[in-house]
Design a protein around this nucleic acid. Structure first.
Lengths: 201, 201
DNA sequence: ACCTGAACACCGTTCAAGT
DNA sequence: ACCTGAACACCGTTCAAGT
């Protein structure tokens, strides 16, 4: 009778990793139902825990959203690093791989990406800023190497990196908002790469 | 006694333009407090009307958000057209003016722009799609003229227009999310214009 | 340390009923 | 046509209390 809440438990709820379970469930809900249907009480219910229990791990709803966003930044930056590494030594191939990975992440995690780039109403947590920094660093490293090799368009290097970042994010926004069909994505990426790489000739 | 709800009424509530009053108040709330604090009940309260009254004009909360987004698209496209017209005959100046206007709109209406480009969960209303079309047409016209005059980079014209749109939206996203400081905006726009215009020489 | 249970002040949405 | 008032099923957040 006191084991009621362990009905569907092979997962070790109630001891240890409630925080991780909440985050995992939250990400699933975010992907499948959208941010509007994401409620702390529902997450607690699905974790078999009282509605006040999440408060130990996330002081309020925004804290959970911030944690989701931070995890998103880390995962996207890891995927970008891997894609760039797999692309070999050709800078244009690296650029194309990075852009493709970024847009694919955007289409598969539309609500999460939106959350990651939500207008910050107040100050963002340090963890969230760090996570964004990881993403920026992933893009930055690639672009910096390409610039040093003289493969990119001229212009202020820092701004050019930001601009490339902005272009990827912009394409992602158009795709997830439905303004651009998935069939146009590859062409858009190709044009963007052409635009940024030095067409020396 | 039956005039209770007209306490602060010089506005003609309760007769005629509740819809417009709700939209105006909603946009103010969106700008000042963010989308999370935007509630139909609160809007009704501020309009001096029962909480069920808005239902006549907006079937649900999403309908009101869609109407806000549509109005945003129309206003932004109007501002873009005006800025382009004021910029004269030089295509690069037009491009710079359009980008500046777009980013300024983004910084002043961050929450609204986010709403405008929110990932569509289902189908979007026809009115919303039309409004987006107006925005796209505003950008499109300018770019098309520049392309015909041979002032832009080569590449598939349709995709180049989308790419330019994406770049503006991407810069806007980085600015409103706080990833790019307002001091870097002008430089970013300048670099973007340089990138897109044909540096023939 | 981590969680419960009740309570408070809100929501969106629905629906019969009023004018 | 447009609006009211009560009702329903939810929220997030707080807090004393339990183990």
């Amino acid at each position: 009778m006191q084991c009621y809440r362990a009905v569907m438990a092979d997962r070790p709820y109630h001891h240890g990793n409630l925080r991780a379970a909440l985050l995992a469930e939250a990400e699933r809900t975010l992907r499948e139902d959208g941010i509007d249907r994401l409620s702390l009480r529902d997450l607690a219910r699905q974790a078999g825990v009282s509605h006040a229990a999440p408060r130990r791990h996330f002081p309020d709803r925004q804290a959970l959203l911030d944690a989701l966003a931070a995890a998103g930044f880390l995962r996207l930056s890891d995927e970008l690093r891997a894609a760039i590494e797999d692309a070999g030594d050709d800078y244009e191939a690296q650029l194309r791989a990075a852009a493709t990975t970024y847009i694919r992440f955007a289409t598969r995690n539309a609500a999460l990406l939106e959350l990651m780039f939500a207008a910050k109403r107040g100050e963002q947590s340090a963890a969230l800023q760090d996570a964004f920094g990881r993403l920026y660093a992933a893009v930055d490293g690639m672009v910096r190497r390409a610039q040093q090799a003289g493969k990119l368009q001229r212009g202020d290097p820092d701004r050019l990196r930001l601009l490339l970042f902005a272009t990827m994010q912009g394409i992602a926004a158009l795709v997830t908002s439905g303004a651009v069909g998935s069939g146009q994505v590859d062409g858009l990426i190709a044009d963007a790469v052409t635009l940024f790489t030095k067409s020396s000739g």
